[in-house]
């Protein structure tokens, strides 16, 4: 434990700025993955254990697009669009068959696809790790805000993730499609009886979830190494986020992800040997005091 380092940091604006942005970066990428997970659970009532694979595919799609075109924007687009299509196919062909089934059956299908997707990546891109590289536009000196270091790429990353969060939140709350999705989450039978194609909604939500994870992967690709199986560690943290925030809650995912980001960022200063443990400890505290998560609703 190193509380001096923590209090010292809290007293200095430079350290505060650096560590807070660091927490934001970790948190926002986590949010993009977790929000897809929570959305799919909220509407489809399925815990998508293969969600990490979409994060992985997003990164690989982005890297390949970047290698061929040299365009960063196109890489991000390919990462997001590619995983959306993949999500749609995966939902329609496989997941839609196990909606009514036992949880264990769903888990088994998802876990099978974790392994299958990893091997597909291994076959296409090879088993060795890859790196996309930082686009030249972002290879610049970091900004110094109040003495703290803030890399411009991370500002973009935070911006994109926040925009996605806002569009998602407003879209679900204000638009007609959003209302239909919420209604389908609440009572799919009634929505279907009203003549709305629930299969389309389910496919669409899965695609959206996949797209968000893919976008996270694409945004992470320039700074993280790409390997088959890279989705797994992200998935575990995303689960912690959804458990803290409450399954099915978008605001919960955002707050949960940022909390985890901050815990990692400041925890590594104050409790360098217990950063991981701190995350789980926090989860336990939330689970004990609010078993449905911070923003989760009581399940009837």
């Amino acid at each position: 434990m190193d509380l001096d380092a923590l209090t010292g940091c809290l007293a200095s604006s430079a350290c505060l700025v650096t560590q807070t942005t660091s927490g934001f970066i970790i948190g926002m990428l986590l949010f993009l993955v977790a929000v897809g997970l929570t959305l799919i659970f909220g509407v489809l009532k399925v815990v998508n254990f293969s969600h990490g694979a979409f994060y992985m595919f997003g990164a690989y799609f982005a890297m390949t697009a970047y290698q061929f075109s040299g365009s960063f924007a196109l890489a991000m687009l390919c990462g997001a669009a590619g995983t959306a299509i993949l999500g749609l196919i995966f939902e329609r062909v496989f997941m839609s068959r196990v909606y009514g089934a036992d949880v264990l059956m769903q888990l088994l299908v998802c876990y099978a696809f974790v392994l299958i997707f990893d091997d597909v990546v291994r076959m296409i891109w090879g088993p060795e790790f890859k790196s996309m590289g930082m686009p030249a536009a972002f290879q610049v000196v970091p900004l110094f805000i109040a003495g703290g270091v803030v890399p411009p790429y991370y500002l973009l990353l935070i911006g994109v993730a926040l925009t996605a969060a806002m569009i998602l939140g407003l879209g679900l709350a204000r638009t007609r499609i959003g209302k239909v999705i919420r209604a389908a989450a609440h009572n799919p039978g009634m929505v279907s009886a009203l003549g709305i194609n629930t299969g389309l909604i389910y496919g669409g939500v899965f695609a959206l979830g996949g797209m968000l994870a893919g976008l996270a992967g694409a945004l992470a690709a320039p700074v993280r190494s790409l390997t088959p199986g890279m989705g797994f560690s992200v998935l575990i943290e995303s689960f912690i986020v959804t458990v803290i925030g409450g399954m099915g809650s978008i605001l919960g995912a955002l707050i949960g992800a940022l909390l985890i980001g901050m815990i990692r960022s400041f925890g590594s200063l104050g409790f360098p040997l217990f950063t991981e443990g701190l995350m789980y400890l926090f989860m336990v505290i939330v689970l004990v005091s609010r078993p449905t998560g911070l923003f989760g609703k009581e399940v009837a």
Binding site: T18, Q19, S22, I25, V149, A220, S233, S265, G267
Partner: peptide, 15 residues
Amino acid sequence: LFQPDYTEVVTKILQ
């Protein structure tokens, strides 16, 4: 080992 993100470690070292 195999941690995907090192940002908090990087900033800690910078501090």
